[in-house]
Computed example of a mutant assay.
Amino acid sequence: MTAVPEVAVRVRRLNRIFPSKRGPGVQALAEVDLEVAPGEFVSLIGPSGCGKSTLLRLIADLDTPTSGELTVFGKSARQARLDQDYGIAFQQAGLLPWRTVAANIELPLKLHGADRTTRRGRVAELIELIGLKDFAGSYPDQLSGGMQQRVAIARALAESPRLLLMDEPFGALDEMTRERMQDELVRICAETRAAVVFVTHSIPEAVFLSDRVVVMSPRPGRIADTVAVDVADAARDDALREDDTFFRSVAAVREALHGTPATSSRPSASSGRGARGVENR
């Protein structure tokens, strides 16, 4: 009998209300239900203020739900954070300017007590993974914006997390650099097999990267619809951006954002990279 794969993220009836001195408070999230499978790439998209980043922060244990259930690999968000089950990357790379590329990537390992040999070996692997071997000794101000974000992603992957949380990591980049970074992220995820929860305002970006695009409603944020992107990992390259499948999925997400249900694109429970990843492990 095949074992049921562990769920990477499970959210049930999640609510987040921010207190206010002037009234009953601001409800950012209302009755949110979401599951992310191991190895699956899920994007959160919706209008500004819909609670996308709030949901990501709750998963990352950077904030606390008002009510509801939230687990990461079957643990509380706090325990998952303590166990370094996830890495996180934000819109700003947040690199320390006085540390080299290698030293920035090494920082989480050093903070958690990894020995020097382990740190050096892991940093070398990650620098190779992000394609910056020639820049290991460079400082952040000597790197382009895209290169800085690659370093930030490598730092988030330093402790081999099973989950990567990303809050608009390419939002500040120009379009050409952004597309190159999307290509890099696809490659990195294929190699690491980490699950990803990715916040973005860009419909094409969400479709290109994701197994599923979760569309959120205006505040209070709810899951309004889910659009499956049925593309094999090997097909996620520049040619996909000109493919009919890509345009159909972009249209389905756009319709969902405007309130027209994308019922024909809703996923089955086993759709996406996550399910294929589980089968291959």
Rank of each mutant, 00 (worst) to 15 (best):
P5G: 05
A8E: 01
V11A: 08
R13Y: 03
N15W: 13
I17H: 04
F18L: 14
P19K: 15
E31F: 11
V32Q: 05
L34F: 09
A37K: 14
V42G: 06
V42D: 07
V42Q: 11
V42N: 08
S43R: 03
L44A: 12
L44V: 05
S48F: 02
L55A: 06
I59W: 09
D61V: 07
D63I: 01
E69M: 15
K75H: 15
R78N: 06
Q79E: 13
L82N: 06
L82F: 10
W98A: 08
R99N: 04
A102G: 12
I105L: 07
E106L: 11
K110D: 06
G121I: 04
R122W: 01
L129V: 04
G131Y: 12
L132Y: 00
D134R: 15
D134W: 00
D134F: 01
D141E: 02
Q142L: 06
G146H: 11
R150H: 08
L157D: 02
L163F: 06
L165F: 05
D167M: 05
E168P: 04
P169D: 01
L173R: 15
L173S: 06
D174K: 09
M176P: 00
R180G: 00
R180V: 08
D183G: 13
L185K: 10
E191N: 11
A194Q: 03
F198C: 08
F198K: 09
P204S: 05
E205R: 15
E205H: 13
V213K: 04
D225C: 09
D230A: 14
D233S: 12
R236A: 07
D244F: 08
F247L: 14
S249M: 02
V253D: 08
A256P: 12
L257P: 10
G259K: 02
G259S: 04
T260M: 12
S265H: 14
S268R: 15
S268I: 08
S268M: 13
G272P: 08
G272R: 04
A275H: 15
N280I: 10
R281V: 02
R281Q: 13
